[in-house]
């Protein structure tokens, strides 16, 4: 309302990075909780990890890494005013993000099928350490999944904006910041893979 719209891309990126700081600390709290519990129950975590599907975990890692690559390539394309390429890259990212979620849901579904979910009768029969392992597994991958969904929403908007020219060669800060968010989601998964799937 006060009409002093001034543009500060550097400031916008700084703001985004500071937001990512809060995200890092948010997951950092969970990683701290994880290490606290793993220190306490090393054998149970080892055993719990062996119940997870390494193939799916690694596949999802590759999917997310690739989706990260296509986002950063989309930025390069926008910088070079290659709109069609940018749209192709961003669409690939969205598709990969969806694939990630589909794989994830199969994985969770299998766990539920085996009675491995919080408060399940089967889980209650397992040793306490394993109950905590699965509690953390569902919490951390679940919260990560929520971030993937949010990221997909944001990137869909970016796809729209690139298509309509709102994001373009001389103005792509929104895409850059959305990309930053998506990369952070990727980084968190980079940590989740060895903590859960490769713990065995």
């Amino acid at each position: 309302m006060s009409g002093h719209v001034h543009r500060d891309d550097y400031g916008a990126r700084l703001g985004m990075w500071l937001f990512l700081v809060t995200e890092m600390v948010l997951f950092g709290g969970l990683f701290i909780a994880y290490s606290y519990m793993r220190y306490r129950y090393p054998a149970e975590f080892h055993h719990g990890g062996s119940e997870l599907n390494v193939t799916l975990g690694v596949t999802n890692t590759i999917v997310l890494l690739t989706s990260s690559l296509t986002v950063v390539l989309a930025i390069v394309a926008v910088q070079r005013a290659e709109r069609k390429r940018a749209l192709a890259f961003l669409s690939t990212t969205l598709a990969l993000g969806l694939i990630f979620l589909v794989i994830k849901s199969f994985e969770w579904g299998a766990k539920f099928h085996h009675g491995l979910y919080p408060n399940s009768p089967h889980l209650a029969t397992l040793p306490p350490g394993e109950q905590v392992f699965f509690g953390l597994y569902f919490t951390m991958t679940g919260l990560h999944g929520v971030h993937v969904i949010v990221g997909l929403g944001v990137l869909s908007v970016m796809l729209w904006w690139v298509a309509t020219g709102r994001v373009r060669q001389d103005r792509y800060i929104h895409l850059e910041n959305s990309g930053l968010y998506w990369h952070l989601v990727d980084v968190i998964w980079i940590f989740l893979l060895p903590l859960f799937y490769l713990a065995a």
Binding site: S68, G179, L184, D186, F191, A199
Partner: peptide, 21 residues
């Protein structure tokens, strides 16, 4: 596995931060 976790994972994250981000 633990050494891999402690060395390669931060390295991967670092690459994403340094280049992709």
């Amino acid at each position: 596995a633990v050494w891999g976790l402690l060395t390669l994972t931060p390295l991967k994250a670092g690459l994403v931060f340094y280049f992709f981000m």
